[in-house]
Structures are given as C-alpha cells and as structure tokens.
Nucleic acid binder design. Structure first.
Lengths: 233, 233
DNA sequence: TTTTGTTTGTGTAATATTTACATAATATAA
DNA sequence: TTATATTATGTAAATATTACACAAACAAAA
C-alpha cells in the first residue's frame, strides 16, 4: 500500500452515509414554528421529522443543506448555518447514518407554499413533544443555538415579513427566548441601533391603535463596521 | 425495497469516510500553542497536520475525538467541544473524506510527554503559515471559536497550570484574543467574579516583584447558578 | 549597601449601559 | 359615546465599563 497520495489509505477507511437535516424556523401567529415532514419510515409512522437528505458523493454539506431548503421551500437566498453533527450509532433504524444539522430562518410569507400537501407542516416549536429519529434532540439543540444567535446577531429579521411593527419584532424575541421583555427598553435598544427604517406607514386591520411599520436596514447592517451590540435584557 | 425499517433505504446511500480532527490548544511561554503531527502523506511531506483519526463503524464522533486525544496525550478528563464539519470534496487527496473538527484545551504541564518523538510538536499558533490538507482553515475556525468561547465561559483555566498568577491569566487572554488588556480592569473583573482562590503563595524565581498565586474555583463555578458575566474589555 | 529596573497591587472619576416604571394618545368594537 | 386594547414616549437609579498613576516588592547590578 502506498501513501503516495493517500488513495490506498482512504480506500480502507470504514465508510458511512452522511445526511443533512434542516431545522427550518419560521414565525407566525406570534409563535416560533418549524417546518416538518411526515417520516417515511414505518417505524416512525405518523411521526414528524426534520427536512433532510443524503449528502451526495461529491457534494459539500452546505450545498446539500441549501438543496434541501430549495427543494422544500423553493427559496434560495436565505439564512442558513451549520449547527452540529449528530452521530449516535443507532440514531437511524436503517443503519449507521451521521447527520449534520443546519438551521435556517425563513419568512413564512415569502415562500409560496409548495407545501399544500399534508406531508409538510409548520409546527409550533413549543407544542412538539415527540419526533422521529433523534430529531427532537436536534431541534432542541438548534433552538438553543437560535436563542444564542438572535441575542448576538440581528438575524431575527429573516423570520419577519418585510414590513413589521415593533410589537411584532418584540413578539419574535419573546417567542424565541421564552421571556417577557420590557417594551420601552426593547424599543429604546432598537432605536439606538439604527437598524430600523420607519416606513411612515401604519398597521391596518388591528382592533386597537395601530403601530408604525418598519423595515430592516440591510444597508446599514452590511456596511457598518459597528458591531451589533446584542440583545441582553 | 421495503421502508419497513429503512435498512434497504440506507443501504443505497452513498457512503464516505468520516474523520475527526482535534485542535489541541495549549499555552506556554506566553503563547497560544497547538499540538501538531507531521503529515504521513507524501503529498504533504514535511508539513504539519492536526491530530485526527477515522471514525470507526459504530463509534460516536465525540468518542472518536476523545480517543484521539487520549492516544496522543494520554489525557482523558479534558475540555473538548465539537466545532464544525469540513466537507470540501477534494480536501483529502486520497478521496472524499468529511472531517469534524474538535477543540480541546489542555494544560501542557499536565501531560507527561509521550511526545518526545519529533513527529509531534507544540507550535505557536501565530507562527503557523501552512498546513497539510485544509487544516489551516480548520485551525483558524477553531481559533475564532476559542476567542469567542473564552469571552463567554471560563474555559481558559484549562490551559493554565493549577497555580497561576493574575499576570499569567491576563497573558493567556491577551494571547488568545490578540489584544492588550488593561491590567487594573482585568483584575477587577476577575475579583468580582469570585472564581479565583488566593493560594497565599507567591511566584518564585521571577526577576521582579513576585505575584500572588491563585487557583481556579471549580466548586464555585460548578455550583453557582450565577452566570459567568463574560470578558468584554 | 545602594541604586536601578521591572513588575505587582491598588482606587477613583467619567461615561455608558441597563433596568424599572406610568401616562396620554389612537384606533376599533360595542 | 363609551369601553377596551394597544401604541408611543422619558427619566431616575443602579450597574458596568473605561481610562488612568503611583507606591511597594523583589532581583540584579553597581
């Protein structure tokens, strides 16, 4: 066996399938949602699972995750991050499969539901008790990841419609973090960060005094060298 | 093909080898160090690489990382975290190999060097220009991970001897973060955190006024529900 | 034994950030 | 017109962060 280029070496390695699983978060009805699909394994009949797929022979894992996302939601330019690999040897009943979990945040309004079929459904994260495979664990890990992420980076905007009120923004933070936030301090925080553009429009069809609508200042965020100061209430 | 338990399904998946690579950080001589081994591939002759190994058929990836660590340093109870998977299809010249990077922090004094052979060496992180495979990229990712980690959690103690002076602790932070810190503010921060136990001993053999020696208050850290307030200078 | 060089140990004032908290205004629904 | 719900807004207190200087301890050299 030659180590000249490692080919012979690699040929002897044990091999196993790798998948990616996407935890696709959305926000609707003041709740954090996750997009799930019915498991196609008899063992998990009726149970819900994350959206995943096998990683192809010459495919980067990031690319595989984007592919899953595109296949399921038709969306391409969305937030996506690698979170963690899960490797329990018997996590898949069909044999050993290592999976790499990705988190994506998407605006439920934006994606024209290919998702009318009842195999795919937005679930309220807080109401999920059981999932196929080890997907509950993966979901929990990704939820914790998101809680941390949203406090350190302005990624929450990816979950909201283009126009949103401060109340909606606060609801988003409260839903993800599972805490109540002080409204005046919350608004002050965002006001000083200069990341919101006042659209000079108001909410409509609300049964109370309507709030102003804002959009996220992407320009500002991308150009600014100024660090996101974080949400820490 | 039955989906009864997914066996047939999994059997058709493309398979690939998985490795773990450990970025083993140490601290010595006021520099952040990383433990590297000479590459055994001809293509990378003379170049240095991370300490890695294949993941066995039924082995958890975490277990594989601990195994690598134990094999190379003889240490078992040390800090280790999964950082990220790297998957560029041609990252290994022998064929497709996905690797999962782990970070470990270890006290160089503690491990009785099995490492006298010249295939294994502690390198100053800042002086490394080139590495085998994509290991430079992995190292950089892990260094950034460590920079973030050490500001959010008191993990730095894993890199220091049992007894250390505040100056050594500060040197550690400065070396990892690549910044200069204000001495009085640094000391004040740690004083208020109550994580250091004054050993009532002094440094010896220093050519200047000796400093007090401290040890890390593990009790305090483990029991306390109080959050680590972070280092943010 | 004195002097020099180096590093330790310590406190305060100025600034910035975080927290807690209440009232008037605007819309819809009844 | 009134009741209900929610928006918009500011201030004072507490806490955290930053910038900064001098005396004391030891070793080494004179």
């Amino acid at each position: 066996m030659s180590l000249k280029n490692g080919v012979a070496l690699v040929a002897q390695y044990p091999k196993m399938p790798i998948t990616v699983d996407c935890v696709i978060f959305g926000f609707d009805d003041n709740e954090l949602k996750v997009l799930l699909i019915r498991s196609d394994l008899e063992k998990y009949q009726g149970m819900w699972s994350l959206l995943g797929d096998i990683v192809n022979e010459s495919e980067e894992i990031d690319a595989a995750a984007y592919r899953v996302l595109d296949q399921r939601t038709g969306m391409t330019d969305i937030y996506l991050d690698q979170v963690k690999a899960f490797s329990r040897p018997n996590r898949h009943p069909g044999g050993r499969v290592i999976t790499i979990a990705y988190c994506s945040l998407l605006n439920i309004q934006h994606h024209s539901l290919k998702i009318t079929d009842n195999e795919l459904h937005w679930h309220s994260v807080s109401s999920i008790t059981e999932m196929a495979f080890d997907h509950k664990e993966i979901l929990e890990t990704c939820h914790e990841w998101l809680q941390k992420m949203i406090q350190e980076n302005p990624v929450g905007f990816n979950l909201l419609p283009d126009k949103f009120s401060l109340r909606e923004l606060q609801n988003l933070y409260e839903a993800i973090l599972g805490v109540d936030l002080d409204r005046r301090n919350f608004r002050k925080k965002f006001a000083t960060m200069d990341l919101l553009i006042d659209l000079e429009e108001m909410e409509e069809d609300v049964p109370h005094r309507p709030g102003k609508l804002y959009k996220f200042n992407f320009e500002k965020y991308n150009k600014s060298s100024r660090k996101w100061v974080g949400i820490d209430f």
